[in-house]
């Protein structure tokens, strides 16, 4: 094992973590502001990828596809908020779990009816193909772009929430709903905007990742479960927590898959070590989550309330 390989794996973990952040940011925002648990967030990720692939396929332009994917996810998010979620804010988590579970069934089957049962094709834009030499190791340009995009979105989100009028309202909404309603903020519109924003981020993640993954029905659920792990580790409702949690999960998962089989190989034959290492690696992030919750039951960055 060389330093170059370790460095490359670290970058891979970072990139994976940043994509998880895009997913988790929306989830945690929606929970923080509206107190809503949304299982259908993974479906918005899927919608982003499908519309991006379809639009890119029609126009031959990845960037148009990206815009279409985000727009479609945001539109779907707004539509869902207005028709369904709005009625769930005052309900308990149980009702929210069931309603959004139902939405997964509807959106998955709906996507299949719309786009057919076969996976779609979405290619990396020509501008971002190939590799760049990072000194230690060549690295895929597209993955580097994903890292940059992830950091860019995180910064943008930070500015949005910290520096804009909308951000002030969002923070106020997290703290006291009645208060901001009394101040004359249109809370209904605010909720719709926040939900659509979270959906757009999920759609963006889906579209970006779709170019190097299989765009297929059900692609959102594995990411969704990891995103839940992320926000639980970070503290539900905390954007900063989502960032830290996402990077932790991304790096630990990648490193675990890479290093654990090698650790097992010290005392098992290679084939068995590979199997055992992979098995342990697949539950590593869940172990991490259990450990953190034992130490800090409300996550690393607990949100008061």
């Amino acid at each position: 094992m060389t330093a170059a390989l370790l460095f490359e794996q670290f970058l891979n973990g970072l990139q994976f973590g940043l994509m998880l952040f895009l997913m988790s940011a929306g989830l945690t925002l929606v929970f923080g502001v509206m107190g809503l648990i949304n299982l259908a967030h993974g479906s918005l990720f899927m919608i982003g990828a499908f519309f991006c692939a379809a639009a890119a396929g029609l126009t031959g332009n990845f960037w148009l596809g990206l815009a279409a994917g985000m727009a479609a996810a945001a539109a779907a998010g707004a539509l869902i908020e207005v028709t369904v979620m709005r009625r769930l804010y005052t309900r308990d988590h149980l009702d929210q779990v069931l309603a959004t579970f139902a939405l997964i069934l509807i959106l998955s089957e709906g996507t299949k009816i719309l786009f057919g049962p076969f996976p779609l094709y979405l290619d990396v834009p020509p501008l971002l193909t190939g590799t760049v030499d990072l000194g230690l190791t060549p690295y895929p340009l597209y993955r580097l772009a994903l890292i940059v995009a992830g950091i860019g979105v995180a910064l943008g989100l930070w500015l949005l929430i910290g520096r804009t009028r909308l951000g002030i309202r969002i923070r106020a909404g997290e703290n006291d709903r009645e208060m901001i309603a009394a101040l004359g903020v249109n809370i209904r519109a605010l909720y719709t905007v926040v939900f659509a924003l979270g959906a757009a981020l999920a759609g963006l993640a889906g579209a970006l990742v779709g170019a190097v993954q299989s765009v297929q029905v059900g692609m959102g659920e594995p990411v969704l479960i990891l995103a839940f792990v992320v926000i639980v580790i970070g503290g539900i409702g905390s954007i900063r927590g989502a960032m830290v949690g996402a990077l932790l999960v991304g790096v630990i998962d990648t490193m675990g898959r890479f290093l654990l089989p090698q650790v097992f190989a010290l005392f098992l034959d290679p084939s068995k070590a590979s199997g055992a290492g992979a098995a342990l690696a697949s539950i590593l992030v869940y172990l991490l989550m259990a450990l953190i919750l034992v130490i800090r039951p409300k996550g690393l960055f607990p949100v008061h309330a």
Binding site: I37, H93, V97, I225, F228, V229, I231, V232, I236, Y286, M289, A290, L293, P297, K298, G299
Partner: peptide
């Protein structure tokens, strides 16, 4: 948190 940790 309970919902999520039982899922995990």
């Amino acid at each position: 948190f309970f919902i999520m940790i039982t899922l995990a």
